[in-house]
Design a protein around this nucleic acid. Sequence first.
RNA 1: GGGGGGAUACCAGAGCGGUCAAAUGGGACGGACUGUAAAUCCGUUGCUUCGGCUACGAAGGUUCGAAUCCUUCUCCCCCCA
Length: 427
Amino acid sequence: MNFVEELRWRGMLHDIMPGTEELLNKGMASGYIGFDPTADSLHVGHLTQIMTLIHFQRAGHKPYALVGGATGMVGDPSGKSAERNLLSEDVLQHNLTCVKKQLEQFLNFNSGANSAQMVNNYDWFKNFTFLDFIRDVGKHITVNYMMAKDSVKKRLEGDTGMSFTEFTYQLVQGYDFYYLWKHHNCTLQMGGSDQWGNIVTGTELVRRKEGGEAFALTTQLIKKADGTKFGKTESGAVWLDPARTSPYQFYQFWLNTSDADAKSYIRIFTLLSREVIEAMEAEQDAAPHTRVLQKALAKDITIRVHGETEYEKAIKSSDFLFGNTGIEFLNELNDAEVKGLFEGVPNFNISLEELKAGINATDLLAAKTAVFPSKGEAKKMIQGGGVSINRNKIATADDIFNADNLINGKFLVAQKGKKNYFLIVAE
RNA sequence: GGGGGGAUACCAGAGCGGUCAAAUGGGACGGACUGUAAAUCCGUUGCUUCGGCUACGAAGGUUCGAAUCCUUCUCCCCCCA
């Protein structure tokens, strides 16, 4: 398998430095991608980079996943219009541990010569003094060169300016590349297209410092067909951490991909072969409502990220919540089974005693539970016909609910709109 | 150092003494249609015990009444040096 060819037909390739393909065709090469620990979980936006590393390894090369214990302390100005807040060391350390753990599940760390390897740039920066850095690294790159970068230019032109710290970022990242090149024979750095400038600073450093050769390859930034940002839902980013985004919600996110996007996403986020993908596309074009692509996409990624068992559960929940099964079906399940079905959606507990006395709709949804952030909002949406309990639309905000409404004497199923489910448990 | 302009809801941006919880556009959310798609159309978009309450950078003041006028402060932009 040819790595660059693979990225090309999948539509992932954005830019590649001349000579890179030749280098990779010569035999096993080492390449890396950096991940800055800005949060304690990666999100779906990082998956492109993860997939790039997976392809890289599958093509027989040795992938390095770099976590930015050092760069994370500085803050990458790329694509940011304003200065970033620095994270405290505690937070950073915590994020680092979590991100590292997530990355580990995607690559093969035990495949002989091309085993994946995890590195942390803090390891080579922690004892690097400021003076040494400006003499050994800063000396080789001119400020003129650094200022010509888009990420810097934009900020200099904009209103907010840029601190020296962020200005330095590209040098820090550039040194990472130099270090890996020098000590791990790592000749290629990859990343999203917004990283081109930073990566090239690295290749430049390798060239000027040692006259060596290093290469760069960037991937397309994922966008939705309607131009809006990829990876966001109404409740924010879609995370890989199941505690932040449940496997059910994760599965739903991919299943809801629009037709226009599904064709490109299935190439980017799955390892399915060209033949299989093209066959599925034909199938989908013939019967669009079957959403063959979305289902395959959601299945593949959910399994990769959360595993087979969680995928099965997500399917079961989805089938019930969006299928034709009536709400009565829940009566046939025991409590544990009901809870399992609703595991991926927000759960709330209320007091059975209070419910027996009768609670009106707005209190139930906004005061006793946090289905809505305020009663006003709950009321408005009820009036707009957007809220259901046990699949029945709530007619007025004053509707009273009591123990008679409970399913299995314990549960209420609330819906905000069609897609947002909530389980209310009365105990 | 001198002079000028500005800060309004998630964002952009009107309003320049009462009729302003604040036009308009975008976004977001909901409804209809559909395929849990796209497009389109419609509605909602500060909180509330529905009496009110809090809000137009911050703090004071004038006034029966302020987003609108005055004072001070903070931040931003532009021009001159």
